[in-house]
Design a protein around this nucleic acid. Structure first.
Lengths: 109, 109
DNA sequence: ATTTTATATCGCAATATTACGATTGCCTGG
DNA sequence: CCAGGCAATCGTAATATTGCGATATAAAAT
């Protein structure tokens, strides 16, 4: 055991879980926030700004890229990362719908 | 190594990461959706509805509870789980603010 | 008091994640 | 072509997650 039983769930559930998982780390949230602020892409600046090793940052970037949340393009010497608009919109839609499903606190338990 | 360096990040980043992590599993998304639909709480019904063992469901519920996303009260024989309004509102706020920070696709890379 | 029913917890095995040093690959400038 | 820096990858250690059977706990029914 030790691996998620994806066959049991819907594609939507698996997809949302994958996206959330990709963001569910403080370093990756910090990376995304940096990208959101300086809209324009960043890269090795992160190594200096966050207190993590280059290999670690690269790994986090890879995970965000694998999930489709960011995309990277070669920009001369360094590499430029930025938000993938398509996935971001999908995320807004899926997550928005999910959160909105909660109808106030109609006295449950 | 192998453990997240939380000291490096802000409380907000760590908190959001914890909440996202708690939701970042298809089974837990499915559980939350069930709760959102039948607003009123559920419990061992999940064992029949999702295809997972009782011990596994119980563990997922525990994780959601630890994160503060759901709360449980004893309801006679069984236990009634429902959304924790406080955390849900926090999540909406944090996540909403986060997602909204993206200013369209102003030609990045 | 004993059985039934509903959950939680323990213990384990398989796998995934996190972090980093070391190395490799790759472009650019000399 | 070769040296420079930037970023990806490899390998490894420590720890976390996922899933389940088995067992424990606790309230309700008999």
């Amino acid at each position: 055991m030790g691996l998620t039983k994806t066959e049991i769930f819907t594609d939507e559930q698996n997809q949302l879980a994958t996206l959330l998982k990709a963001m569910a780390h403080p370093a990756r949230i910090a990376i995304l926030q940096r990208i959101l602020i300086s809209n324009t892409c960043i890269c090795g600046d992160l190594v200096g700004e966050l207190g993590l090793a280059q290999a670690t940052i690269s790994q986090h970037l890879k995970e965000l890229k694998n999930a489709g949340i960011i995309q990277g393009t070669i920009e001369g010497v360094s590499i430029c990362y930025c938000i993938n608009p398509k996935t971001w919109k999908l995320l807004e839609k899926q997550l928005g719908g999910f959160l909105a499903e909660y109808k106030g606190e109609t006295s449950c338990c």
